[in-house]
Design a protein around this nucleic acid. Sequence first.
DNA 1: TCAAAAATAAGAATCATTCTTGTTTTTAAG
DNA 2: CTTAAAAACAAGAATGATTCTTATTTTTGA
Lengths: 142, 142
Amino acid sequence: MSQARNYSKKREAVLEAVRSTKCHPGARWIYEQVKPKLPDISLGTVYRNIKVCREEGLLASVGVVNNEERFDGIVEPHQHAICTKCGSIMDVESAAPAGQPSLNGFAVDNRRTVFYGVCAKCSGQKKGFKGFGRLVGRFGKN
Amino acid sequence: MSQARNYSKKREAVLEAVRSTKCHPGARWIYEQVKPKLPDISLGTVYRNIKVCREEGLLASVGVVNNEERFDGIVEPHQHAICTKCGSIMDVESAAPAGQPSLNGFAVDNRRTVFYGVCAKCSGQKKGFKGFGRLVGRFGKN
DNA sequence: TCAAAAATAAGAATCATTCTTGTTTTTAAG
DNA sequence: CTTAAAAACAAGAATGATTCTTATTTTTGA
């Protein structure tokens, strides 16, 4: 859906590309997604519009994986799991952490929790693989 | 202190440089730290030895700040606060999170929580500055 | 209608990191 | 003590994501 602000067609397309997927893409992926629809878009425009959208709070960074920054169209606070084998990023459903605390004068604006591990696809390359001593169940209160 | 393994002088120096500080340095800082003592060390050697030490579990990555990866000689799980103005990284004391959970077959090896905000030095540029609606007090159970 | 502001394309510049090549040092066996 | 293989290394090239620059096009508002 569009924002209140009057966005250019290209900016809308960048934003929509991120919102359309759960893969938490990087700039290159977004560019390749938008390119067929708007063939004269440049990678620089993608970067610039990611930046604008982040400044407006419409996109959030999830972190850097393999030297590439990854983004999320869901800006409500939640957590992520990153597979250290394939680099995929998944949402983690769990109780939202409490309000932002402060420590020794450090004013917290935001927090990010990331779980690192091996995704089902990567660890399940052998059927019935049970390594890593994983626990099963829902996350607690973080 | 030295490790069981027989490390080269340069590798020891890289490891020691990270361990000697609380600033959670990047490769360049480490290089500049070691260079005066071992003038014929190269930046490539710093990178390679960071990598080796990480593989051996002697160093950990804290994350990427301003496009630079930052490291920590304290590998026991703990959390960090990153100042979005100056890029400084501080340790956060708080209750250690519970054991690693699993989600839909994702085997968690490790988790990382980072608090983003403005450090006392940056926010305190005016005495008595009280912006950012900060709370004061210790962190809860995360 | 027109001037200023915003958005853009194209490609150069930056810069952290990795890789390559050839050399030096260490190790271990004989 | 040799010596050959392995490990560590320096120097600098290569890579690749991101940012910056410049000139152009589009949008906006008076």
